[in-house]
Design a protein around this nucleic acid. Structure first.
Lengths: 191, 191
DNA sequence: CGCGTAATTGAAAAGTATCAACACTGGTGG
DNA sequence: CCACCAGTGTTGATACTTTTCAATTACGCG
């Protein structure tokens, strides 16, 4: 459930010659800070080198719906950049992050000039489509209990890594429901 | 809610020189036939020229979850092809379809050799990501009544175009709930 | 120890699923 | 022409799940 992409990260690190003179920058982002804000211009594509971030859409009522959790190698801002459009989601550091940032123009340049880079970006987009399709399908067609059980099975340390509030926004339920279901799973002994 | 992409369709039609000797084929697909079946090898990328199709994931219990409705210009099979992986969803004609089909090898060739083609594919993937994110976020965080009201507002002829069974699988609810909510909307006069 | 804040729980209301009963439709055969 | 039937679509009743919101408990800290 935490999206990573070490292949792309490795590629960037091993091909530093593609980024002369500050065309890639390493940056520290403190927990709680936004890498991308909603409905803003995105000037840089960011790749998470270490740490954990959440990507979310704000709802009218002030609460958020978390689309994905991003770990090492995850790329953010590329969609907005490809459309020359305002961002449609926000990305926020959940702990201290190190990110690599590529300015919009250099990113576009590389996309047309470097075949490997291009192919990485295409596969990364395709993987986002596929992952989203599978995840949302499962989410919508299973009960909270089934969803939680699956997540805990794949990632037993889930509750230590991700705050309940975030989990709730990721699953699209209320905190009350999460608590009740967690208790039920405990009673059943599956947790 | 019906995904289209006339820009890409136009591009293909206007650039027929890119497809010599049967490297693109027009095909008629009868209603109910599958363009892509689940967990199969995808050998061709298909672009819908006319008609309507649904893309879905089958659940364990035999029911489906519809990810998208595809109209003219929609591209299917490109994700599987990019990964050299089995298909993760099925695509089925909802009425008689005409599709353009590009064999896997030619598609990959064009991706590396034709910059415009490449850029179309990238933007098409990016748009799938963005669309899915926004749709699922809304779906999960609103009631059926809100979802239906929004869909009917955007597309008043909805119920004539899409069968209730499909609508139900798209929204991830039961037919009973759809009926009740439709009636409620009628009583309210919003439909 | 007491206070403020955050996290958890209980109870009632709202939303949705399940399943069976009922209605509608278009044949088919008497 | 009508009674019957099968298939399909709709509704009612009930159970279950989730939300809402207030009450309670737990926790950190002066």
């Amino acid at each position: 459930m935490i999206r990573t992409n070490t292949a792309f990260l490795d590629f960037l690190i091993k091909n530093s010659h593609l980024f002369p003179a500050d065309s890639i920058q390493e940056k520290i982002v403190e927990s709680g800070c936004l890498i991308i804000t909603e409905r803003s211009n995105v000037q840089k594509v960011s790749i998470i080198k270490s740490g954990l971030a959440k990507c979310y859409l704000s709802k009218d009522d002030g609460t958020d719906f978390i689309l994905e959790f991003f770990g090492p190698g995850a790329v953010v801002g590329e969609i907005e950049m490809l459309f020359d459009d305002l961002s449609f989601a926000a990305v926020e550091a959940m702990n201290t992050l190190t990110v690599l940032q590529i300015p919009r123009d250099r990113f576009k340049e590389l996309l047309t000039q470097n075949a490997t880079f291009n192919s990485h970006v295409i596969r990364l987009l395709a993987s986002k489509v596929k992952y989203k399709a599978i995840r949302f399908s499962f989410n919508q067609t299973h009960t909270l209990e089934q969803n939680l059980a699956k997540m805990l099975q794949e990632m037993p340390e889930l509750l230590d890594v991700i705050a309940k509030k975030d989990l709730v926004n990721y699953l699209g339920v209320t905190e009350r429901s999460l608590n009740r279901t967690l208790k039920k799973l405990k009673d059943k002994g599956s947790i």
